[in-house]
């Protein structure tokens, strides 16, 4: 009776054991890479904001909003807005020069159609946002959509405006 039960339970024990080994290995890998992954994200944001605000000397992060400082004086804000594009999520880093005006936007990641939707990540589209009041970030306001990429253009415009209004509110008037 005893050996029979063991024989029947053996596959269960084996699979459990293999899953345990796998889980231990993965938590080690996660431990090693976690810090580096978080670092990469901050480094990416810092690089983009440095280009947007050439006078930046330091950066602080609080409640998902980066505050850009030049010798302890606030010169702008940065945050990540996420829009639903044609091919998936579009992450946009938005810079504000004050609580109501956009300094610029940079597309951090997107899965749009190559050659069509991806053009929203390029200069002619993104440069339109510089100096625009956040209430005017609309396709029927100050921003022109890219022909053939209406969905991608709209996703970005909506995500930028909604996130900007929300962040401006949380920053206080």
């Amino acid at each position: 009776m005893q050996p029979n039960i063991f024989k029947r339970l053996y596959p269960v024990i084996l699979v459990t054991f293999i899953v345990l080994v796998s889980a231990v290995l993965l938590s080690f890998t996660d431990d090693i890479t976690r810090g580096k992954i978080a670092e990469q994200e901050v480094a990416q944001v810092r690089g983009v904001l440095e280009e947007m605000f050439p006078n930046m000397t330091s950066l602080t992060l609080e409640n998902d909003i980066y505050t850009v400082l030049e010798n302890d004086t606030t010169i702008g804000y940065g945050f990540v807005a996420v829009g639903r594009g044609y091919g998936g999520e579009i992450s946009i880093l938005v810079g504000l020069e004050n609580k109501t005006t956009v300094k610029g936007i940079v597309i951090i990641s997107q899965d749009e159609t190559p050659g069509l939707g991806t053009r929203v990540a390029e200069e002619p589209f993104t440069s339109q946002f510089a100096g625009v009041d956040i209430d005017d970030v609309r396709l029927d306001g100050k921003i022109d959509a890219i022909t053939g990429s209406t969905i991608s253009s709209e996703a970005i415009v909506e995500a930028v405006r909604n996130a900007a209004l929300e962040k401006a509110e949380s920053l206080g008037e």
Partner: peptide, 15 residues
Amino acid sequence: VVISTFVTVVSLVFQ
């Protein structure tokens, strides 16, 4: 299980 363990390792390292 074996294959997905290696895939997760690759994916974390690439990230």
